[in-house]
Design a binder for these strands. Structure first.
Lengths: 232, 232, 232, 232
DNA sequence: TATGAATGAGGGTTCATTCAT
DNA sequence: CATGAATGAACCCTCATTCAT
C-alpha cells in the first residue's frame, strides 16, 4: 500500500509534469502547479526526482518511449510494405504524436519544445531515440529516390529535414495557423488530412527530383552547391 | 547630446532585449539581464517602454520591420520575374532573416519563438506583417500551380505551410540538426545551399502535384479529404 | 514542535503586523519591517496569509475580537444594571481598548486608522463588529433619553456619534493633546478619569436634552433640522 | 512672464498637492500624481520646494491660513456676541473647514490627518495656529460654565476636547458614518444640521454640568479624579 | 528657469528548495 | 515515506531624486 501510494504519486507527478511542461515550457512551469495538479506535496518532487531538473529529465525519457509506443513510426505496417505507405505511416504517426489530444498528448509537444529550446537533458534523448528515427526515415526516402542512393547521402538528409520540417511546423506554429487557416481542425480526421497532404507533397517532390533538377538550378540563380541526385 | 543619449539608451535596450528575448524566451528572460547588457538602469525599461511587456511588444514590431528591410521577400527581384525565381528569393530571404548572424539576427529567432509560444503581442504582428507575407507567398504558389487556382484555395494554403515549415525547421531544430547533419554550416554559402534545396524540393512537388495525385491517394489509405488540384 | 512553531510564526507575524500597521498605516508599512520584527522570512507572510492584504485583513478581524474579549463593552456589568452605569462601562471600555498600553494595544489604534483611511477590509469588520456595538450604545442612549424614543431615531444616532467622537478624539489627536494638555497621563487612572469626564459630559447633555432645546434653537440661529426628543 | 509662469506653477503644485496629500496621506501620495495634476514636470517640485517633504511643509503652513481665512472661527460674529452663538459659530466653521467640498476643501482634511499622523512639520503649526484656536474655544466654554472658572482649568480643557472630538469624528469616521447613518448628507444644509446638534448637545452638557455631578459620580464607580466645577 | 532622461533604493510577490517532523 | 512550514534569492515594478541640458 505504501509502495503503491509511492509509485502512484510518482506517476501522477510525471503525468502532471508532462501536461504543464509541454504547455508552458521548463522555465515558466512551476513546481507548485505540477504538484497541485498531481495532488501531491510541494516537496514530493524533490523527494522523488531530486528537483525540478530531475523531474524534467525523467519526464523527457519517458515521453519518447510512451509516445513511440502509442504511435509507432510504422503504425503497424509490415516491414515489407511499400515505401510510399511507410512514409505515410511515418508522417501520420509523427503528427499524431505531436497533435493528439488524448491523455499523454504532451509527449510530442515536449519533444518539439526540447528541440527548439534544448536543455542539458537533450543529448541522451537524441542518441537513444531521435537518431534511430531519423535513420528509419532516411531509409524510406532513399528507397523512394531509388538509384541506389545511400541513406547517408547529403540529399537524403536534406529531404529528411524537408519532411520533418513540414510535420513540426503544423504543431509549432499552431498559433499562426489558427489565424491563417482557421478552418483547420486538429481532430483525428484533420490530422489524417494533414498527413495526406504532407505525404502527397513530399512524394511529388521525391518522385520527380531528377526531372526538376534543372528548374531548381535555374531558379537558384547560379548557386549550385545544392546537392542533386547525380552527385553521390 | 540629450536627444542622442535618450534615443541611444532606447536603442541599446532594444538591441539587448532582442538578443536576450530571442535566446531565452519572454518568461525566462529577465529585465535585469537586458539592462545590464544595455548598460542601462533597471528602471529605464519602464521609463521608455512602460515595462517588460511594452519592451517586448516594441521589440517585436521593430524586429519584423528591420528584418524585412534587411532581407526583403523579393530580394530585389523585379515584380515580373518568373514565379520560380520569386519563390527562391522568398525562401532565401526567409532563411537569411532567421539564420543571419549579423547584428539583429534575433529578428527571425524572435518571430519563430513567438509563433511557438505566442504572447499577447502576437496578434498585431500577425495582422501587420505575417498576413501580407503569407498572401505574397500564396500568390507565387498559385501561379506555379497554374490552372487558375485561387491563392485562397485550401491546397495553396497547405503548400504554403509545407514551404514555410521547411524553412522554419532549419532554425527551430538547430540543436538537433547540429547532431544530425554536423557538416552543415550556417554561413552565407550554407544558407544559400539550403535555400536551393528547399526551393528545389518544393518546386518538384508543386510542378508535379497533379501527376502524383494517385500515389498520395494510395498511400493515404482512403482518407481523401486532402485537397487535390482538380478540386478547385 | 512543528505545530507550535507553525502557529508561533503566524502569531508573531500578527503581533508585529499589529504594531507596524497601527503605527504607520497600511500603505506606509512594509512587509519587510513586519517580518524583521517577527523574526520571520519575507515569504512567510505570503505563505500564511497570502500577501500583505491578507495579513491586514486577518489582523483586523483578530484585533476586534481580541480587543472586545479583553475589554468587553459592559465590563462585566449585569445586563440589568442602570443605563448610566452601562454607559460609563461602554465609554471606559472603549477608551481602554484604544489607549491601553499592554500587548495588543494596537487593536484600537488599528480600528481608528481604518475608520479614517478605510481599506477594502473594512466592510466585513463593520458588519461583524461595529454595527452590533453601535446598536448596543444606541439602546443605552434611548433608555436614558426616555420618552420611549426608538434606538433608530435620528437623535439617538447623533448622540451616539457625539459620544463615540469624544472617545476617539482622545486617541486620534494624541499628538495634539500631548501639547494642549501635557499633564494628561494615559495610565489606568488617567483613562479612568477621562471616562468619568466623558460620561459626565454626555449624561449632562442627555438628561437635559429637552430642557435646553430652546437654547440650542437660539444658538443655531434658525437652522432647525436638528432633531429634538419631541420629534419622534 | 517668466516670473508669472514660475509663481503659477508653484501655486498649481500647491493646489494639486493639497488635494492629493489630503486624500491619500503623505506616504501614499506620489510626486508624479501631484505633478501630473498640476501639469508640471516631475522635477519641478524639487526645484520649487526642495523635495516631497518641502512641498508638504509649505502646504501645511498655507493650509491653516487659507482655511481660517475662508471659514474664520467666529464666522463674522461681533466679539461681544453671546457665548452660545460664538460656540455655534466655532463649531459650524470647524465643520465647514473639514467637510467643505469646494476648491481648497483639503485644508481641514490635511490638518485632521496631521493630528492623527503627525509629521515633523506639525510642531510649528500647532504653536502658530492650533494653540490660539484652542484658547479661543476655552474662553467661550469658561464663559458658559460661568462661576468665574479659568480658561486654563482642567475641566475647561476636558470640555474643549469633548467638543472638538465631536466635530472631528464627523470627518474622520466618514467611512463608518456612511454605513451607520446613510441618510446623512454633507452638503451645506447637512453640515449646518450637524453643527446644530453638536452645539445643542454640548450646551446641554455645559449648562447643567453642576446639576449632574452626582450622577456621574455614581456611574464613575468611585473614580473621582474627574474635575468638577467646584474644584477650581 | 525648467525639463526629459536616467538612477538606485526599496516595494510586494514568487519561486525552487530545504528542514524538522 | 511524506509533509507542512520556512527560507532566501530573484522577480518586475514604483518611487523620489538627480543630472545634463
Amino acid at each position: 500500500m505504501t509502495q503503491d501510494s509511492g509509485e502512484d504519486t510518482k506517476q501522477r507527478l510525471l503525468a502532471a509534469a508532462g501536461e504543464v511542461f509541454s504547455k508552458q515550457g521548463f522555465k515558466a512551469a512551476t513546481v507548485r502547479t505540477i504538484c497541485r495538479m498531481a495532488r501531491a506535496n510541494v516537496a514530493a518532487v524533490h523527494y522523488h526526482f531530486g528537483g525540478k531538473d530531475g523531474l524534467y529529465s525523467a519526464l523527457l525519457s519517458e515521453a519518447f518511449v510512451t509516445g513511440l509506443r502509442r504511435n509507432p513510426p510504422d503504425m503497424g505496417l509490415p516491414a515489407d510494405a511499400p515505401a510510399e505507405e511507410r512514409l505515410h505511416a511515418f508522417i501520420h504517426s509523427f503528427l499524431l504524436r505531436m497533435l493528439g489530444d488524448g491523455k499523454g498528448a504532451w509527449c510530442g509537444k515536449l519533444m518539439a519544445r526540447e528541440m527548439f529550446e534544448p536543455t542539458q537533458a537533450l543529448s541522451q534523448v537524441v542518441e537513444r531515440h531521435i537518431l534511430p528515427l531519423s535513420a528509419y526515415l532516411r531509409s524510406i526516402i532513399a528507397e523512394i529516390l531509388g538509384n541506389g542512393i545511400s541513406p547517408e547521402d547529403k540529399l537524403v538528409r536534406q529531404c529528411s529535414m524537408s519532411i520533418v520540417g513540414q510535420c513540426q511546423y503544423i504543431f509549432r506554429s499552431r498559433a499562426i495557423i489558427d489565424v491563417l487557416a482557421p478552418d483547420l481542425r486538429f481532430d483525428e480526421a484533420g490530422i489524417s488530412g494533414l498527413a495526406d497532404h504532407i505525404t502527397h507533397f513530399s512524394l511529388c517532390a521525391l518522385k520527380n527530383f531528377s526531372h526538376c533538377a534543372q528548374i531548381a538550378g535555374t531558379a537558384a540563380s547560379g548557386h549550385e552547391q545544392s546537392a542533386s541526385p547525380q552527385e553521390s
